[in-house]
Design a binder for these strands. Sequence first.
DNA 1: TCTCCCATACTTGCATACTAGTCTACGACC
DNA 2: GGTCGTAGACTAGTATGCAAGTATGGGAGA
Lengths: 244, 244
Amino acid sequence: MSVVALDPGGGPIAAQVVRALRHAIVTMRLRPGEMLSEQEIAGRFGVSRSPVREAFIKLSEVGLVRVLPQRGTRVAPISYAAVEDARFVREAVETAIVREASARRAIPREALADNLGRQRAAARARDGAAFFALDEEFHRLLAEAAGRASAFKVIEDVKAQMDRVRYLAMPGATSMGMLVEQHGAIARAVTALDPDRAAAAMRAHLSEILQSLPALALAHPDLFEAVPAGLVPTERPALEDATS
Amino acid sequence: MSVVALDPGGGPIAAQVVRALRHAIVTMRLRPGEMLSEQEIAGRFGVSRSPVREAFIKLSEVGLVRVLPQRGTRVAPISYAAVEDARFVREAVETAIVREASARRAIPREALADNLGRQRAAARARDGAAFFALDEEFHRLLAEAAGRASAFKVIEDVKAQMDRVRYLAMPGATSMGMLVEQHGAIARAVTALDPDRAAAAMRAHLSEILQSLPALALAHPDLFEAVPAGLVPTERPALEDATS
DNA sequence: TCTCCCATACTTGCATACTAGTCTACGACC
DNA sequence: GGTCGTAGACTAGTATGCAAGTATGGGAGA
């Protein structure tokens, strides 16, 4: 395979390269630590270095690669701290989103129900890729319900860090069935226009990732950034605001 | 002036161009609607199109410019909705930050006090630029106190939208003195390790911008995105969580 | 055999060249 | 005089070329 097809969504080549690389990194087809080069990737996709370079810059901003000037670009290792920071930001923004959605009383009940139905189907079929996409859509639906679609752009960037962990965790115990159930709880609370319960459900959902993280770091030490001190970094309980 | 100096902070040219353009846009030296071209800006800075292009991409991601393929790049108008969305994200993340800082009990009291002192000095001297920098540093100090320096990167991006408004509002009534006082209230609450009060103070501080916004939009209609319906978009009270 | 040095083959950062699309203004035609 | 068509001068997107820095491996010397 000298030239790999490229057209998930079309549009500018640079954007296509971003999507393709991001997907490859999240699904571990490009493994942490692996060296990439603008030239090589350009050749693989049959394009020039320019769009690849722009893609590298974008991916480095979301923390999926590290550009080392004059030395190369490597896939960033999964960092416990980075994942935790991403969770922190998502918790802050997404709890605010479900609060606002609950307050706005304009919930897209059908869309949420439909999405949840397809989530269940994907979970039953053990179709991880489909479930991933539906998960993203679910969270975006909530943001749109709150009238904060633009805030979701922030989430999208930050999410990249968590997606690799989620991918690793997929076959495990904390798998799709439980996530569907958590999504359902969020949807029920939002539909019931109960901001506090919705925020609590969202917080619980996003904290789930912290459960699987230590075990995954132990199981795949080669994929993770070396943890300097203890294997389980400073225990930091999920921030509870007075509403929970 | 054929070639403008370029070296605020040094480093890669692209980063320098980002800083220079960002500053020019925030201070309205490049006004909303103004057409830029990679070629022209490159010539003005005495560099090639490549770093300028990368700068445009970065600035378009934070919403300060809009790239129109094959047509040009223009300075984005100030958008009421974008400013409000930025405030929303900042409120969500920064209230979480001060909560966490308060809970961590490792407050850099001296640094905060020192910063506040310099803020007062800048306010007395009516030195807007200095005050701007100190404001940013204040918020970064809080993020670092919470151990969430990386979360501040998100804030930094989102802040761009609000900075132009803040710049416009600077000579006005809601000026530096009041902001210093608000910062002081936040610092006092954090120092007192009172998460609820700190979050409430932060929320009040960030809501301040909503006060000046309608008047500024009226005073400078040429700088703002055309507001379709009513002049004052859908009144949306600051999201209050159950803690306030 | 071990160590040091240097040639070489990489890398990204930046500059330049080419492609393709959009707007505009001028001129021909009606 | 008015309108339509077209040529040219822009634009950003992409490709390629050049410069500067880094890692590496092999050979020379001890």
